[in-house]
């Protein structure tokens, strides 16, 4: 039978009373309750697959940007990936893989209708998601401390640069006190920031779209100001993170791509965790059983996709070489 679903019945209701009334409007009793459920389940599943396709394309756009920029400027990615800690990345991969397993088990338990086990596996999956986000938090805060922000807020200077900047700043402060009567006196108080940019190596334009040579542009100005204001004095880098070579032009682009990809993925993990909570509530109401497990099944599909995207992200970003 087809054409006889009660689509306006929400998923969870459809398993209950409405099945009996399903008969109205077409030849009664022939449409068995189970038949309806099956059609509805298939519709839901097809819908979810289509939704996952859009998700893949959403990330696909970002992966395209990654590919294009990497093809144009491979050195940038070799340089940038040194700042990403493979150990954390690998741990996160394991965490997500494990959570996929528990999610799959949750689906199985939902099919069997074992309420407590469903909830147990959902909780484990949720905790894995939380762990993943915790590790991401650790990684992100490290980046932020080092000034590895995306885009124009990018403020990283390697140790030598930072050291020089600090000395320069002290020098300028001394000068500031002695040269107050110059016409630019008012500007002088701001000078250390402006001076910081002199330290930027005049990197030659690289890649397909090198920025116009404007030494006054974002990168310089912003970088030293942030560094000076906050982190320069105590700048202590984990030696293992020291990049192999000089900072390439457009270093910020790597981190833009890194934060966009992992950020969008992180948002999806958070949405997934929210979904787990919702599924736990449904499960605790005893809604799932052999006849009705659509939400868990669809949630599982979503979670596997989120997992799968990370499986791609990890080597692309962390294991460049």
């Amino acid at each position: 039978m087809s054409g006889d679903v009660q689509p306006q019945d929400s998923n969870q209701q459809a398993g209950h009373g409405d099945g009996h009334e399903d008969g109205h409007g077409h030849s009664p009793y022939q449409a068995h309750h189970f038949d309806t459920m099956r059609q509805q389940f298939e519709a839901g599943k097809l819908g979810m697959w289509l939704f996952l396709a859009t998700e893949v394309l959403l990330f696909g756009g970002l992966f395209c940007f990654y590919t294009i920029y990497k093809a144009n400027d491979p050195e940038l990615f070799k340089w940038g990936h040194h700042f990403l800690d493979k150990r954390w990345g690998a741990t996160n991969t394991m965490v997500l893989l494990f959570s996929s397993l528990t999610m799959a088990l949750a689906v199985r338990e939902a099919q069997l209708g074992r309420k407590n086990r469903i909830i147990f596996f959902l909780v484990v999956t949720f905790l894995c998601g939380a762990g993943f986000m915790g590790i991401k938090y650790v990684e992100y805060s490290k980046k932020f401390e080092e000034g590895l922000f995306p885009g124009k807020y990018f403020a990283y200077e390697n140790v030598v640069d930072a050291e020089e900047a600090r000395m320069h700043e002290q020098e300028q402060q001394k000068l500031a006190h002695t040269e107050l009567d110059l016409p630019q006196a008012k500007v002088v108080t701001e000078l250390p920031k402006a001076q910081g940019l002199v330290l930027q190596p005049a990197t030659p334009p690289m890649g397909l779209a090198a920025p116009p040579k404007e030494p006054d542009d974002h990168g310089g100005g912003a970088s030293s100001s942030v560094t000076d204001a906050g982190h320069a004095p105590g700048l202590a880098l984990d030696p293992s993170h020291l990049p192999p070579g000089p900072r390439p032009a457009n270093a910020h682009v790597f981190f833009s791509i890194y934060f966009c990809l992992t950020g969008l993925h992180g948002i999806h993990v958070l949405i997934g965790m929210g979904m787990m909570v919702w599924l736990m509530v449904l499960a605790s109401q005893g809604r799932f059983g052999p006849g009705y497990f659509t939400p868990v099944d669809l949630g599982g599909l979503y979670w596997h996709l989120v997992d799968l995207i990370w499986i791609y992200l990890f080597p692309l970003l962390y294991l460049v070489e």
């Binding site: 940007f65 995306p150 885009g151 890649g207 779209a209 116009p212 682009v253």
Partner: peptide, 22 residues
């Protein structure tokens, strides 16, 4: 995703579309 990145280009200057940011 393209528009999202354009929003980020305007706010953070991520340097994907704007030649001044690379």
């Amino acid at each position: 995703i393209t528009l999202l990145l354009l929003i980020l280009e305007r706010t953070l200057g991520i340097g994907i579309f704007d030649p001044r940011n690379g």
